[in-house]
Design a protein around this nucleic acid. Structure first.
Length: 243
DNA sequence: AGTCATGTTGACGA
DNA sequence: CTCGTCAACATGAC
């Protein structure tokens, strides 16, 4: 379900509850949910794939992992991990990780590494990559401390767009290409958001799950690459391997 | 029907 | 203690 853009959509969809008081709370999460009772939501935020429900002096962090889902003013059959009731609606989360972050949320997150945040700082990504020269780019792009919000789909699409083989070593990729990769991580994330809202994300995939390269018509390669062993779809004819 | 995946954490062992 | 590996979690698409 979730890469960064999907969590941005979630944030937009729950805006009706900003400033609302939680009048009932339940769920099978292990956190102390009583703490949320009668609290007012100050703000919803996201940091990459993290969905943040901010209160005065603490924040509930929700991570949907691979299979998490949510419902707004609806319920699924299964028990919610966390359910928040308001005077005029409810918000339900299923099969996700729920944690509490104490104090000022700004002390927990560096917003400048989130590719969809207004404070996103490409130069910072550049500096981080410079320290990872022996890593494969497919792993570096998925590093949430460098490109928060980027997931496996975005990884495959960005590498294809930039003509870079996923197993290329970060330190061997020309500076110009690195800069383009960094830029595309953010640019593609916003395109992902735009297409996902129109329910046409998949039809815009050029690499992810594809069997043939639309540029040269040769078959794609599918391989679990890097330390993370995540699926990569790539064209060895069009995407250059720097090693 | 069985396999696999848009992800991360924590336990365990070397 | 630290590093690396891997199981665990849990749903739905194909």
């Amino acid at each position: 379900m979730p890469e960064g853009p999907s969590i941005v959509i979630l944030k937009e969809e729950v805006q009706q509850f900003t400033g609302q008081k939680i009048i009932s709370v339940s769920g099978n999460t292990s956190i102390d949910i009583n703490r949320l009772q009668d609290k007012t939501i100050q703000e919803f935020k996201t940091w990459g794939k993290h969905f943040l429900i901010c209160f005065n002096d603490f924040t509930v962090k929700i991570h949907l992992l691979m299979f998490g889902t949510y419902r707004i003013n609806e319920r699924k059959e299964i028990d919610p991990r966390l359910s928040l009731g308001f005077s005029d609606g409810e918000l339900n989360f299923y099969t996700c990780s729920v944690k509490i972050l104490e104090g000022d949320i700004n002390t927990h997150y560096d917003w400048s590494v989130d590719v969809m945040n207004e404070n996103w700082d490409p130069k910072k990504a550049r500096m981080s990559l410079d320290k990872m020269s022996d890593k494969m780019i497919c792993d570096a792009i998925l590093d949430q401390n460098v490109f928060s919000g980027v997931g496996n789909i975005i990884k495959n699409e960005v590498l294809y767009r930039c003509y870079i083989h996923p197993e290329s070593l970060v330190g061997k990729i020309p500076a110009e290409d690195i800069n383009q990769l960094i830029s595309e991580c953010s640019v593609y994330s916003f395109e992902f958001l735009y297409w996902k809202k129109k329910f046409e994300l998949k039809q815009h995939w050029l690499a992810h799950t594809k069997k043939t390269c639309l540029r040269c018509n040769l078959p794609f390669h599918k391989k679990h690459t890097g330390d993370k062993k995540r699926r990569s779809f790539f064209c060895t004819n069009c995407q250059k391997l720097y090693k």
